[in-house]
Amino acid sequence: PAHPYDRLKTTSTDPVSDIDVTRREAYLSSEEFKEKFGMTKEAFYKLPKWKQNKFKMAVQLF
């Protein structure tokens, strides 16, 4: 299930529990994912792991 970005980011005051914290981005809706990352999930997962992590750090999901 998708969760709002505000509850997934590492600085959230009301974090979602029971998620894989190493894959926070996977819980974003497709729309919100595209808004935050500027690309689709499919394109994101084709990137090298280090680049994925760099993007995730930039949007507080790492």
Rank of each mutant, 00 (worst) to 15 (best):
P1F: 10
A2R: 14
H3Q: 07
H3L: 13
H3V: 11
P4S: 10
P4R: 06
Y5L: 05
Y5W: 09
Y5G: 04
Y5V: 05
D6T: 00
D6W: 08
D6R: 00
D6Q: 01
R7Y: 06
K9D: 09
T10P: 02
T11E: 09
T11P: 05
S12M: 03
S12Y: 06
T13P: 08
D14W: 11
D14E: 06
D14Y: 11
P15W: 02
P15C: 11
P15S: 02
S17N: 12
D18Y: 06
I19E: 05
I19S: 02
I19P: 03
D20P: 02
D20Y: 01
D20C: 12
D20G: 10
D20V: 03
V21H: 10
V21N: 06
V21M: 08
V21T: 11
T22Y: 09
T22A: 09
R23F: 07
R23K: 12
R23C: 15
R23N: 06
R24A: 05
R24D: 02
R24N: 05
R24H: 09
R24L: 13
R24M: 10
R24C: 12
R24Q: 04
R24W: 14
E25C: 12
E25D: 03
E25F: 10
E25W: 05
A26E: 10
A26I: 10
A26N: 07
Y27N: 02
Y27M: 03
Y27F: 02
S29R: 03
S29I: 01
S29E: 03
S30R: 12
S30F: 12
S30E: 14
S30D: 15
E31N: 08
E32W: 06
E32R: 06
F33R: 00
F33Q: 01
F33T: 01
K34Y: 15
K34W: 15
K34P: 04
E35C: 12
E35R: 10
E35I: 10
K36Q: 10
K36V: 15
F37N: 00
F37A: 00
F37I: 02
G38S: 08
G38E: 09
M39H: 00
M39Y: 02
M39P: 00
M39R: 01
T40A: 09
K41P: 07
K41H: 08
E42V: 10
E42F: 10
E42H: 09
E42T: 10
A43H: 10
A43L: 13
F44K: 00
F44M: 01
F44N: 00
Y45G: 03
K46T: 11
K46L: 13
L47A: 01
K49R: 12
K49G: 08
K49V: 13
K49Q: 11
W50F: 06
K51Y: 10
Q52V: 01
Q52S: 01
Q52Y: 01
N53S: 09
N53F: 09
F55R: 08
K56Q: 01
K56N: 03
K56M: 07
M57I: 13
M57Y: 09
A58T: 10
A58H: 10
A58L: 14
A58V: 08
A58K: 13
V59W: 11
V59D: 04
Q60T: 05
Q60M: 13
Q60C: 15
Q60W: 10
Q60H: 14
L61A: 09
L61Q: 04
F62I: 14
F62W: 14
